[in-house]
């Protein structure tokens, strides 16, 4: 494992901890899209099915369990916690997940590297992760006064995928036969979706203003 990959995973982990911190500290999930959280849970669920079939490393297993556990606990808080669930902006969180789930499923069936159930579900999770942030970005655009923790959560999520690109470049240069164009294209698209957000995030930071998306 290289430094970029470790930094990427840690950034991903920190982003989730920031979201959990927001929920615990403010007893609110205002500005957080439940649709995006549902999609991430689906992504982790399908991608980590190999927990039962393939052992890679202790680090790998522990991280997978942590990502699964935290994503489902976030959903639990947003749906069922008696205080937190009342702060969910249901009326604003209107993105139709079906419009990204179905195309990703079709794409995974058509374009994959191996015709097996596990591999197709894994490929589906790669495609779905690339676009799972869309409901969150739409909700942010509709949210007035995005709080710091929510802004930082999305910023860390974007940074995580950006760091993965550096990891892929590093692996491409150092490992023979490392050719992962499905993952690369999806990852570049995923990072690209954050470009607009990054622009306004840095603008707000530079001008010492509260973040808001036009």
């Amino acid at each position: 494992m290289n430094i970029f990959r470790l930094a990427a995973d840690m950034t991903h982990l920190i982003s989730i901890l920031v979201l959990l911190l927001k929920i615990h500290a403010t007893r609110s999930c205002r500005g957080i899209s439940l649709k995006t959280q549902d999609l991430y849970a689906l992504v982790f669920l399908f991608r980590y099915l190999d927990l039962f079939t393939r052992y890679i490393s202790l680090y790998n297993t522990v991280m997978k369990l942590v990502f699964l556990g935290t994503s489902f606990s976030i959903i639990y808080f947003m749906r069922f916690h008696r205080v937190v669930r009342n702060t969910y902006d249901k009326e604003q969180d209107t993105f139709r997940s079906i419009f990204i789930v179905v195309p990703c499923a079709v794409l995974a069936l058509l374009i994959n590297q191996e015709r097996s159930v596990l591999e197709i579900l894994w490929t589906f999770s790669i495609y779905l992760e690339a676009v799972a942030i869309l409901p969150q970005l739409v909700l942010l655009q509709r949210t007035q006064n995005i709080d710091n923790l929510t802004g930082n959560y999305v910023f860390l999520l974007g940074t995580y995928r950006g760091l993965y690109i550096l990891n892929w470049i590093y692996r491409y240069l150092t490992e023979p036969h490392y050719r992962q164009w499905i993952v690369w294209l999806s990852g570049v698209l995923q990072t690209g979706l954050y470009v607009d957000f990054f622009y306004y995030y840095f603008l707000a930071w530079r001008n010492n203003q509260k973040l808001s998306l036009p």
């Binding site: 393939r54 890679i56 050719r179 992962q180």
Partner: peptide, 10 residues
């Protein structure tokens, strides 16, 4: 082997 390589990432 290629599939295994992709699967070692999170």
């Amino acid at each position: 082997e290629q599939a295994v390589r992709a699967h070692d990432e999170l």
